[in-house]
Each structure stands twice: as structure tokens, then as C-alpha cells.
Design a protein around this nucleic acid. Structure first.
Lengths: 113, 113
DNA sequence: CGACAATATCGACATCTGTCAATATATCCA
DNA sequence: TGGATATATTGACAGATGTCGATATTGTCG
């Protein structure tokens, strides 16, 4: 479901790349989706909560409490993060536990240089 | 005019930071603005064109030709990139020349880890 | 000055996005 | 089985965003 998880396009030129061309439409659209997932304060705080958690995972219920948003809104944002491949979810009982995907974060970071 | 150019907030925990807390609302909003500037395919292609150019700068007229968008649209996107601090512009005669701001790109990249 | 060229701004419009209340779905427990 | 809890989905709506045509602004050159 996570789209663009295998993209390696870069905004700035890489270490003497052969072609050394700028992004084409497909690459740009793919990358734009990733950045769009990061372009909301609520989502950034969610991702931050998850990525900096002690045991590496956070229950959705915790996040609804932490952020000043309704439960449906938080659920929506978590879905966006998941579809962008930035987090994964694991349902255990009634609770939904979220984990960050460091490789995906690294991939997006790499696209910036 | 460029907002948030001095932010050093990170989504994931930094090298044993003292507080080790997640983003607050202010930091998250600031970062979100930066990512929002990167969340459009046209803007990514513009930034890519600029950042990978031979002499480090690109004339606006070149970009209007390169992308399949109207002149007002390209002008709008360049303005967004400029206000995000990702590029700078320099008017020489009738032409407007754009340059990337590597430090700003690095700062955004650093926020991802 | 006046014609031309490059860029920016304005106004309008369709689409996308964030938000919440209401509701549905899934799971646990008594 | 039935009630309670956690999460997801739906529907609606306001506000933001990308786009273009028309126009304004700025600078060059005869």
C-alpha cells in the first residue's frame, strides 16, 4: 500500500551521477507524495511521538490523548503516514500499535541530498 | 521573509538529546511549512533544475519552457520556494535568476534524522 | 518617449485537505 | 450473548491550494 518506497531520485545532484539530470514527472510526483505526508503539523507530531518512543512503538490511544484532535482526525493522519510508508501498524487486541520505518525516513532524507 | 530557517527540531531523536521529547506545536508547524513547499511535483522539479544546474543558477524563462505550466503558475511556485528559504532570486535586467540554498536543504534533511 | 519582453500579481475556479459528529467494525470481558 | 472499549469509516463542510487568463509592473532598447 505504501507508494514510492523504492524511489531513489534526488533533488540535488548525487556524487557524480552519470546522467546528472533533474527529476522527471514521475519521480517528482512520487517524492511529492512523501513530502505531502510530512507537511502537516499533526502528522509530524505523531511521527515524532512514534519515532522517539522508548520501546519503539506507540498505542494509538496514547496519541489521541497527546494531540488536541478528535479520534477520527488522529486515525486519519495515522492512515496517511502508514500509506506513505513512514509507519507500520500492528493490532494487538483492541489496541493499535504504531512503529516508525527508519529506512523510509532515510530514503526521503536521501532525496534531499 | 523565509520562515523557519533557523529551526533545528528533529522528527526522530537526536544523538542522546537531554530532553529527548517529541516536537511541540510550534516546531511541528514550522517544519510542516518546509515540507509543504516540497510537496508539489512542479516545485520539486523546479528545485531540481536549479540545484543541478551547471553554474548554480537558472533563469526563470528557462523553467517556464522546461515545465509544462503557464508562466504565472511557474512564477507562483518559485515564490513558494523562495518564501520557504529553499531558493534565492536575483534580478539582472529583465531576467530573474534563481539559486538553491544548500544550507536550508541540509536543515530540512537534518530534521528527518 | 514608446514599443517590446520578462516577470509578478489579480481574480476566478475546481480540486484537495483537515476537521468533526455520527456511525460502523472489531475485540475483550463478564 | 451482551455491554464496553478502541479504532476505522462515512458524510459534510470550511479553508487551503494549483491552475490559468488577463492585467500590472519592471526593465531594455530604438
Amino acid at each position: 500500500m505504501a507508494r514510492g518506497a523504492n524511489a531513489s531520485a534526488r533533488v540535488i545532484a548525487c556524487c557524480g551521477a552519470p546522467g546528472d539530470r533533474s527529476l522527471d514527472i514521475t519521480q517528482a510526483t512520487e517524492l511529492a507524495h512523501a513530502f505531502a505526508a510530512l507537511s502537516d503539523p499533526v502528522r509530524l507530531r505523531l511521527l515524532s511521538l512514534i519515532a522517539t518512543s522508548r520501546n519503539g512503538e506507540v498505542c494509538a490511544c496514547t496519541m489521541v490523548e497527546a494531540l488536541d484532535r478528535s479520534q477520527p482526525t488522529v486515525s486519519h493522519h495515522l492512515k496517511v503516514l502508514r500509506e506513505a510508508g513512514l509507519v507500520t501498524s500492528d493490532k494487538r487486541g483492541t489496541w493499535m500499535w504504531y512503529r516508525a520505518v527508519p529506512e523510509r525516513l532515510a530514503a526521503v532524507r536521501a532525496a534531499l541530498g
